[in-house]
Structures are given as C-alpha cells and as structure tokens.
Design a protein around this nucleic acid. Structure first.
Length: 500
RNA sequence: GCCCCCAUCGUCUAGCGGCCUAGGAUGUCACCCUUUCAAGGUGAAGACACGGGUUCGAGUCCCGUUGGGGGUACCA
C-alpha cells in the first residue's frame, strides 16, 4: 500500500560544503526530490556548514551546479531564498543557541566541561576494560555548586544531551519498517560545540522542525543516530517527520561505501565519482538520472528506460529496496548509448558540434552535421565519439591512411590499386552522386573485378575516410562530394606505388 | 568489541505464501543480419547464502548461523 502523507510534503537535501557533489549524494538528493515531486511537495536545499574546519571554498557553487546539471531543482535554498530561511546553518546560530538553552533549562541537556584530553583518557580506560566506548556522563551528575564553580572559572563547555538510561526506542522507517534500539546505547551526544556551533544532531532537528520538513530522506549511514534524533524530537515535544533511510551505494566490487575518489570497476576501468566528472566525461544528464533512479528503486513493467516525469509519477519511497547496492557503472554506459539512439536525429546533430570543435575541427554548417548524425547515431556511445567516427569529414587537409591499410583481405597492392583506378573511372562518370547510385555502380564494379563487396567497399572506405572503421561508405561519399572523393581515391592509388 | 541495517543470476533488480520448472536489464558467449564498426534479431550459460521452524504449501513469515554493509567524534 502506498504511503499517504498526513501533512504537506517538504523534503530537503542538506549537503556540507566540503567539496564537489558526489554521485552518491546526487542519488540521495534525487530520491528526496522524486519523493517531493511525486506528492507535489517542495524540495529544499539547506547547507550544513557547522564544521568550519571542513569548509571548502567554492563548494557551494559546485553543489548547486551539480544539482542543476542533473535537473534537480529546489524550491527554497540559499540562493533562491524562501520563507523558512536562511538556508545556511552558519547563519542560523541564534536558533541553535536558543533551543540548546531551552533543553538545558528543561533538564533535557546539560553543560559539560570535560576536556578533549579527559575524554580520550576515559575512552582509553574503557577500552582497556573492554567496556563500550563513549562519554562517561561525568558532568551530567555535577552538583549545582560544582557547576557554578566551573562557570566562575570560565571553563569552556559544550551542551550534551541527557540520553535516556534504559528502555527501548522503536522508530518506523518508510523503507526499513520498525527499528528498535536499546536506549542504553544512546550517547550523551554533544549538541552545541564549544565554538558555539551546533553539531549535526542539534542542527538537523531544529532546522527540520523550523523548516517543516515532512520527510527526512538520508543515507542509511545515519541509521545508528536515529534513536538519538528521536530522543531529541521527544525532548522538544515536536512532531517527528517521516524517516526514510536510503541504501548506501557501495563500490562497484561491493566492498565498502563508494569512495570519493579513485574508484575502479573489477576490470580496472576508472569510475567517475563526482557529478562534474560525469559531465566532463560526456554523459547525458538525463541518462545519469535514469541510471541513478534504477539503483534501489524499480520502475515496474520490466522497464529500465524512462523519463524523469514518468518516474515522478510512479515513485514510491516505501518500495525502495533497503539493501545496499554495488555501483552498477557498466549500465550507465549502455544507458547513455541508449539515450543517444533514442533521441531525435536533429537533436543529436546539435550536440555534435561542440566535441568536434573541442577537438580543433571546424564545422562549417549545421547541415553537414544533420546529414552525418543519422550515420553515426547507432554507433555513438558518447557525443565525443563523433571525433573518431566522423572527424575525417572536417579534417583539413585530409589525413590519408597508411597505404597498407588500403589492402583488404585476400588482396594485394596490385589488385587494390586496380580497384581504385577502376573506381575512379566509374565514379567520375557519375553525375548524380547519391549513395543509391554509388552502391549500384560499385557493386557492379566489384562483380566485374571478381571482388567481394566487403573487399571493394573496404578499399573505398579506407581511401575516402582514411579509416578502416567508419560510417557506411556511400552515404559518407555522398556527403563528402564527388570531387573530394575522386581526389582521395587517386591519392590512395598513388600511395600504393610505394609498396611495389 | 558493541550497536544497527541488509541478504534472489558477476552486477542492478522483479517477486510482498500457491500465478516461480524464479521474470527483466546489464555484462559475457554463440548464431543470424551485414559494407567495416555499431545497432538490431535469436539463443546460451548464470541466482533464491546455510540450518532449523510455521504452513497442506516458503524465494516470500519466524529464529539461528554465516556473510556483507554502516555506525561507534566538540565530522557531517
């Protein structure tokens, strides 16, 4: 049964500005976004920059660019604003201070004066004794006098949660169902750091509440801190959002969380990890989104290729597979090629100019591109493959293949030269230089010379394109034009003389 | 160590007690088509981790084992 929210749907993606958008983060953002869009809700972007030491200059723009490229749009966020702003946590400190103080006043939290050194020492001793690690709650039990004394001394302090000491906490997760934890495992976590910034735990609860987030979607790495968060919701007495912990994307070999860098397929090919790397590698954003949607979720009807609108229509957060998934990178390459094959030819043509120009070639007219596009459409895996497939259309001067490449199977220099010479004669007589006519004449010539089509056409292909592998030869010749074809064929015939 | 999550072809997945001699996709390998290369077509190999229950009946429910993943910070 599908999930029916009892409140307006507002989901958020809350990255830290610590670098460029990771493909795993993009998947989390995408699922949150699909959830919101499915219910005609709002998708909010919030920046969680509460750790000043990890801040990376320029990463906010990187994050936004990555999402924009994928087509994941946000209704509220640091750049566009919204009525729940500001959307950057470092600009919301007053809220965290206010609510941290509230917790202390209401006996839900306390100030802790322990030094990092003492904390380390406590853990070391616990380790030695084989006890569970964690804060020993020393300051939780300070007397008012002791507390006053420390304040008077001006000791720096943090605010810690008073975690429940016993009992159990059960939470319902939209993807995982009921999850139960022993409260004894909940730490007296730091909520407000000594530098005045909140930790994730405090900030996420305060902001999700203030921003009226209806569904918390995040990677299941967060599952262990769920009881802590529930404790906080209860301490504040606020209505809890729905929770959905998404499966983690593992490295392609299934070993460990997908890394931020240096990821390889079992066969050794490198896998891009940053969204901007996908863009740079020439992936089609729609294909990447389609690909990501298929990890942990299934469209149904045995369909794997669909538009984002279709997935919004069908998306069901409760049907997300709770199991972690190895990153199925090879499917993306297939999908990218599928997207190229399925797009209208003129759309493809428009995408071909840029890679050609980036390769230093001059594209004179869009018309040429439109004529070439149908010849290469089912051969391209990426737009940039056009350079290898059809660069010869634009390369000036023409780069001929080495003469030995002209010689086809079971042929020699002599028979090859003869084929070229005869082809030259026949072709120069043709006025309507169309592929149909060329096929007809060259087919006949092959028969005349006692050659197989593959041999005859192969010789022409190498002579005219300079490549052994190229688009269909007669369509190609038609586009290149009679004059150039004849010149190249003549040159090819000439070049064979070097071999004799 | 402790806590939590997870477990179907190599991989991504369908399956929510009988429709399963387990479906799709990708990848791999054949064959067909063929003007090279692709694309396309056909086909093949390929999985319910294991052990107990529950049930007339289990891939599907329960327990355990094993395996994998995550967490265990004044990082998120």
């Amino acid at each position: 049964m599908a999930h029916i929210p009892d409140r307006p749907v507002r989901t958020r993606f809350a990255p830290s500005p610590t670098g460029s958008l990771h493909i795993g983060g993009a998947r989390t953002a995408l699922f949150s976004w699909l959830l919101a869009k499915h219910y005609d809700g709002k998708f909010i972007l919030r920046i969680e920059d509460t750790d000043r030491t990890r801040y990376v200059e320029g990463s906010l723009e990187e994050l936004l660019d990555g999402l924009r490229w994928l087509g994941i749009t946000w209704d509220e966020g640091p750049d566009v604003g919204g009525s729940y702003g500001p959307y950057t946590q470092s600009e919301r400190l007053e809220h965290y201070h206010k609510w941290a103080a509230w917790l202390v006043e209401n006996d839900k939290a306390y100030r802790c004066y322990c030094t990092a050194e003492r904390l380390a020492q406590v853990n070391e001793e616990k380790k030695k004794r084989g006890e569970q690690l964690g804060y020993d709650r020393h300051c939780r039990y300070l007397t008012p006098e002791e507390r006053a004394q420390r304040e008077a001394e001006g000791l720096s302090s943090v605010v810690r949660l008073k975690a429940p000491l016993d009992g159990q906490t059960t939470v319902h997760d939209l993807i995982h169902g009921e999850i139960t934890f022993d409260n004894s495992t909940i730490q007296d976590a730091v909520l407000l750091k000594s530098d005045g910034f909140p930790t994730y735990h405090l900030a996420v609860i305060v902001d999700d509440h203030l921003m009226e987030i209806s569904h918390v979607t995040r990677s299941s790495e967060w599952l262990p801190s769920l009881p802590l968060h529930v404790t906080l919701w209860n301490a504040f007495g606020w209505q809890m959002p729905y929770y959905a912990h998404l499966p983690v994307i593992l490295n392609p070999n299934g070993k460990g969380k997908m890394s931020k860098r240096e990821v390889f397929m079992p066969d050794g090919t490198q896998v891009p990890t940053l969204v901007r790397d996908y863009k740079a590698a020439g992936y089609i954003p729609e294909a990447v989104v389609n690909f990501l949607t298929n990890i942990g979720w299934n469209f149904g009807d045995d369909r794997e290729v669909f538009t984002v609108e279709e997935s919004i229509e069908r998306f069901d957060i409760t049907k997300v597979n709770p199991a972690n998934a190895a990153f199925p990178f090879d499917k993306l390459n297939w999908l990218n090629a599928t997207y190229i094959q399925n797009m209208p030819t003129d759309v493809l043509a428009a995408h071909l100019r840029q890679p050609l120009e980036e390769a230093g070639l001059t594209v004179d007219s869009d018309e040429t591109l439109r004529r070439i596009a149908p010849l290469v459409q089912e051969r391209l895996k990426f737009y940039k493959d056009i350079v290898d497939w059809a660069g010869f259309f634009f390369r000036e001067p023409f780069v001929a293949a080495p003469p030995e490449d002209l010689i086809q199977k079971k042929m020699d220099a002599e028979s090859t030269a003869q084929a070229l010479e005869r082809a030259y004669e026949v072709l120069s007589q043709i006025d309507d230089f169309t592929h149909e006519r060329l096929l007809e004449k060259m087919d006949a010539l092959a028969t005349e010379l006692g050659l197989k089509r593959g041999q005859m056409f192969g010789v022409l292909r190498v002579a005219v394109t300079g490549q052994r592998v190229a688009p269909p030869i007669f369509e190609t010749m038609e586009i290149i034009g009679k004059d150039k074809c004849l010149t190249r064929i003549q040159q090819a015939a000439e070049s064979l003389k070097q071999l004799t």
